[in-house]
Design a protein around this nucleic acid. Structure first.
Lengths: 382, 382
DNA sequence: GGGGGTTACTTTTGCTGCGGAAGAATCTTG
DNA sequence: CAAGATTCTTCCGCAGCAAAAGTAACCCCC
């Protein structure tokens, strides 16, 4: 199949706008991008000829009977290409197949029984073969890994895999023949939400994830801000309550100690002697069992404080709360809101908070989005 | 005298670059702005003809004997125009005259014996007349006011002046015949530092001021982020230590309670019964007098925590600490650094902190910078 | 002191890519 | 079917850029 690239900057902005915001008429695009209509005719022509865009008369404003010549919405053929996204955790590999618009169309998970790079690459190749068999026209692979990743290709350091300088992209490309993009998992999730999710079109946007650890992503001017500590785990030193609990995972009273799933389970186990799952603890807290309610209430207050601090200093237009540990919001929502109130100026704009219960397939989808960004549109953000 | 405007976007970027970063050769400008040398010849010609720029062979790299044709630095004639900046406080008006490059060339202060808008405007007009008599070619006036300001012209609300919807710019323009720009005082200081001070050329930049209150300014992508609470005083609800002191000015343990000059004086007075100036308290703390040392130590730790939180969430390239209360850093610097360490990831980039002791004339200068931005270069940031 | 080298700037040329205007296409309304 | 509305296309002119070639102003060194 023909490859689309390369795109001029103006063409790229048109392509991204259509990809991210769905079918749009040329006139609408001209308005959004501050270009003339004539320019849009010119810019869209090669994009249509290359097959990236198509005229989609069925889409857009459906039967909105207006006067004048009907607009001709342009869209992407979301199904024309597929992308694979993988999220590698300690003991599992989660895989998804997505369309060009990053909708998940298939899932496949496999246990990871070892951490040898060659073995992991073999597993990824096998999963790729299985998924690609059912979904043709795979255009690329994105892989999300917790840890430090360089150049979209090399895992510089990943403590939980015990990897140092593993050229993962190369290993998988050799086995599959497909272009491969590797990135830090949090970074990938943030990019996905910035392009296709809660952060679409926003200028200042924050992603906070709660799960096995804390993840934090800052998007300014449509671009993710890279930072030194992202790959080593956030929140270990975000001390929210100096009198808070001490856990094996973080400093006393840190966001990690107060909010992450392992820490909450550790606290409950230390207090009750029984090992309970996160869901059981949340249910117990909702049922007002004292120990669970205390731990979860403390977590809720910590989350409220954290969100208020972020809002105070970053002033984002939206904060997305994601990860496997956001069930907290449902049980301890009042505590969260209460602490937001006490830590915010009464006249400050209310926090635009979105909560998204996400599982590991969302992390895998994030990796697929990175593949879309890099492979289809030439790796620039924005 | 001829007026310079209007400027094309490319011309404006050249003008701002020279204005902000001092004399630069055409080659250097081409490099910085990603333009060809030919374009710079074209762009600079009208700027030189209009008098905004001049060739300044005396400036630039002085005796750096390099080979080849010597470069021809372009600079602004800083003294060709003057700008007036005023900062209106509760009981004083501070005024400065600045050059085009925002250097302060004269100062003039007057007590403010009333808050009637007409009276204040009369006073500003009188001060303008006095300053303009000594410094000709005044091109415009900037006024900084604590409170909410709309459209660079109208003071929407200023609690300490008891003003509501006062069209200050119009009142002063009527009396002086000069263009007038009004803005919130913190916003003006932040703009000044972004253009001509610590934040020059930075993408992510934070200004934190400590004085009678707390001021906070966030600059992203070269633009100041406007926010709802800036004009009502920051920090009242930034609770740093829930067990901290209670003061009349802020919530218990808030940044205002812990850090502002009135709160620190209040705490010492409440503990010792004696009224001491801020400088006296700092000196006492340095001499290890217990009460003062305790209050100042607590303030230092609060400041460290605050700086760490800002750095964690905003990841700025630099934080500027300004205001009348930054003497704290000298006396309690160890406490500040200590708390930064405990609240930051060990692998995180160190905070790039700049401390600037500033007085009210710096606030007035900020207002003058706003006049420069708006009047000379057509009000766009960046 | 006069080449040769080096760097800064200017001029020329050609082209890209945009806006604007006019026109074609396609619908609704009367 | 005409008039009006709206979208899209075509065409033209031009701003503004890069590239290349030319000029100017210095250096060093023989």
């Amino acid at each position: 199949m023909t490859d689309w690239l390369p795109l001029s900057p103006a063409e790229r902005s048109v392509a991204i706008e259509v990809l991210v915001h769905g079918p749009l008429s040329r006139t609408e695009l001209a308005r959004r991008l501050n270009l003339s209509q004539g320019s849009l005719t010119r810019l869209t022509k090669p994009l249509i000829e290359s097959g990236l865009l198509v005229e989609a008369p069925w889409a857009g404003a459906p039967a909105e009977a207006r006067q004048g010549r009907p607009s001709q919405p342009l869209g992407v053929v979301a199904e024309s290409r597929s992308f694979l996204g993988f999220k590698i955790t300690d003991e599992m590999v989660y895989g998804v197949v997505t369309s060009l618009r990053s909708d998940i169309v298939a899932r496949l998970d496999r246990p990871l029984t070892g951490h040898d790079p060659e073995y992991v690459a073999d597993l990824l190749a096998a999963m790729t073969a299985e998924l690609a068999g059912r979904h043709p026209a795979v255009a690329g692979i994105g892989i999300g890994v917790g840890g430090f990743v360089r150049e979209y290709a090399v895992v510089g350091e990943s403590p939980y895999l015990s990897w140092r300088d593993v050229p993962l992209a190369g290993l998988v490309r050799e086995r599959t023949g497909l272009p491969v993009v590797v990135e830090n998992d949090v970074a990938a999730l943030v990019e996905a939400e910035t392009w296709f999710g809660a952060g679409r079109g926003l200028d200042r946007f924050v992603v906070l994830t709660i799960g096995a650890g804390i993840g934090y992503g800052l998007v300014l001017g449509g671009r993710r801000v890279p930072c030194a500590e992202e790959d080593r785990g956030f929140g270990r030193h975000w001390i929210i309550d100096p009198q808070g609990p001490l856990t094996p995972q973080g400093e006393r009273g840190s966001a990690v100690s107060l909010l992450t799933i392992p820490s909450i389970r550790y606290q409950v186990r230390a207090a009750t002697g029984r090992d309970a799952s996160y869901e059981e603890i949340l249910a117990a807290a909702a049922a007002r069992e004292p120990m669970a309610a205390r731990v979860i209430g403390e977590a809720g207050r910590a989350l409220g404080t954290l969100l208020a601090q972020i809002a105070n200093f970053v002033m984002p237009q939206k904060i997305l709360l994601a990860g496997e540990g956001v069930g907290l919001m449902e049980v301890a929502g009042d505590a969260v809101r209460d602490m937001i109130r006490t830590h915010r100026h009464p006249l400050a704009a209310p926090i635009n908070l979105e909560t998204k219960v996400s599982d590991f397939h969302d992390w895998a989808r994030g990796a697929a989005v990175l593949a879309i960004q890099v492979l289809v549109l030439g790796r620039t953000g924005g």
